[in-house]
Computed example of a mutant assay.
Amino acid sequence: MTHTHPAIHLNRAAVAYAGRRVLDDFSLDITPGERVAVIGPSGAGKTTLFRLIAGLVKPAEGEAVTLGRDTRQLRGRALARLRREVGFLHQQDNLVPQLRVVHNVLMGRLGHWWLPQALLSLLWPQQIARARAALERVELGDKLWSLPDELSGGQQQRVAVARLVVQQPRLVLADEPVSALDLRLGREIITLLCDLAIHERVTLVVNLHTLDLLQGHFERVIALCDGRLFWQGPPEAIDQTLLRALYGAEYRALHLDEVALPGQSADTPDDDTRA
């Protein structure tokens, strides 16, 4: 039996801003290739967790090891190498509106290119075939020379997924990537991300605002509350009692009593794990 190091290893990690603990005593392991959803109320620390994993913030206490690297020790080129291997997808797609789709997609290669090649690509895109192939994977092969404002919101987020395809990261962190989209489009983007993770053997961690999107996509769900790990387990183990305890006052405002939960139609044993 081979031993595989975790893609993400947090050991009693804490992050503080202006003296206030945003994450505290946080321990978590995520295995390579695992697809994990992160849920929790506003202000729970979900975005800070993503920044910690990516090495954008350092732990004030404990340790954060991402893709085998202790982020506390990373500086300069070592930190740049880690960020090349971590793909980010944000709530806003972060496309450059003045640049055509082909340029935006090829930005995923910037971490792999020398500066002269990157500058040349702004004048005439390098590796156009790679960009076109990535766009075809997200069904936008005909939008290579379009400008972002000529695309719908769902299409713009698909371009951002194509940018991840050309980046070839080992880990993708998607921070509320579909909160600006309707449920149908959101489901399409989550499906694209999970297909990417499966086919490229990429570790995927998604911060989800819409719990309807848990169905059929993720192997594990991690719930945060007040900067701590509140619960973790399979999606099928989530029930309304757990959601009421997790979301508190937000439960009714978010209409969580109407959410179609993965396990609610089946008789699922109560095997959740309190952290």
Rank of each mutant, 00 (worst) to 15 (best):
A13E: 13
G62K: 00
P177F: 15
A118Y: 02
L95W: 09
L144T: 10
V161F: 08
R75C: 02
L120W: 10
T48D: 01
A253I: 03
G19H: 11
G62T: 04
D29H: 09
A162M: 10
T210P: 04
V159L: 06
P59S: 05
E176L: 05
C225Y: 06
A60I: 01
T71D: 04
R83L: 07
S146Q: 08
L211S: 01
Q126T: 06
R75K: 08
H209G: 06
S152A: 06
K143T: 11
P116G: 05
A16P: 03
L181V: 06
R12L: 05
Y17M: 02
L110R: 13
L243Q: 01
Q126A: 08
L10P: 09
R35S: 11
L49T: 09
L208D: 01
L147V: 11
A16L: 11
Q167T: 05
L196V: 06
E63P: 04
H255M: 08
Q73P: 06
G19I: 13
G40W: 04
I238F: 07
L115G: 01
L164H: 12
W231H: 13
Q232E: 11
R77L: 07
H9C: 15
A118I: 06
V259H: 15
R201M: 09
G19T: 05
N207T: 09
L185F: 07
L28S: 12
L254M: 14
V38A: 01
A7E: 09
W113M: 03
R20W: 08
G154C: 12
L242C: 08
L89V: 14
Q167L: 13
S27A: 12
L52R: 02
G108H: 03
V259E: 08
L193E: 11
I238N: 12
D257M: 09
R81F: 05
L123Y: 07
L151H: 14
I39Y: 04
E219K: 05
W231M: 09
V101I: 00
V159Y: 00
F218T: 03
G248C: 03
P32C: 11
G108S: 01
R137D: 13
A14K: 11
M107A: 07
L151E: 08
A131H: 04
Y247W: 15
L261E: 10
D24N: 06
L224T: 05
H199I: 13
F230E: 09
T241M: 07
G19W: 00
L173I: 13
D25P: 11
T66E: 04
A78C: 03
E63D: 12
P41S: 06
R12D: 15
L173S: 12
